[in-house]
């Protein structure tokens, strides 16, 4: 059984599959997928996660709103959040970090970078 659980919130099936493929290399990690912010909140209500990875630009509810919601959630308010996005400006990064994100990675992603960040935040 995996030691840690991770929620990946990403509307692009291609990116989601890439992230799941990359994270599969961390044996202690169980990954759950969500298609957008609302789907992410639903999964958060059903389960307890140790890490959340989210895109910013998504339909229905974007990643920044999701971060805000997570930071007031009793169960997940302290869970580390990684933003993975095409938005590469320093303002976007600063806004995400101010809302409570713990790390900010820009696309196109490199799997080793994502894996290293996840391991650092989970201290594994």
């Amino acid at each position: 059984m995996a030691d840690y659980s991770c929620l990946v919130v990403e509307d692009s099936p291609m990116m989601r599959q890439l992230l799941v493929f990359a994270l599969a290399r961390i044996k202690q990690l169980r990954v759950t997928e969500a298609e957008d912010g609302v789907d992410g909140l639903r999964k958060l209500a059903d389960d307890r996660f140790d890490l959340i990875i989210t895109d910013i630009n998504m339909p229905i509810m974007d990643g920044l709103k999701l971060v805000q919601r997570i930071r007031v959630d009793d169960i997940h308010k302290d869970v580390p959040i990684i933003i993975i996005t095409t938005e590469g400006s320093s303002e976007d990064r600063a806004r995400a970090m101010a809302l409570g994100a713990n790390a900010y990675i820009t696309k196109p992603i490199q799997a080793p970078q994502v894996i290293a960040q996840v391991k650092e935040l989970l201290s594994i």
């Binding site: 692009s12 099936p13 291609m14 599959q17 696309k107």
Partner: peptide, 28 residues
């Protein structure tokens, strides 16, 4: 994953979406 997704759908919109994702998300 790009090849798999590209040929995994018979929906024109999804195929286009995958091409757009390949260009935007994978290549930048």
């Amino acid at each position: 994953i790009a090849a798999y997704q590209l040929h995994a759908s018979f929906s024109i919109r999804r195929v286009l979406r995958h091409v757009q994702d390949m260009l935007g998300q994978l290549m930048g």
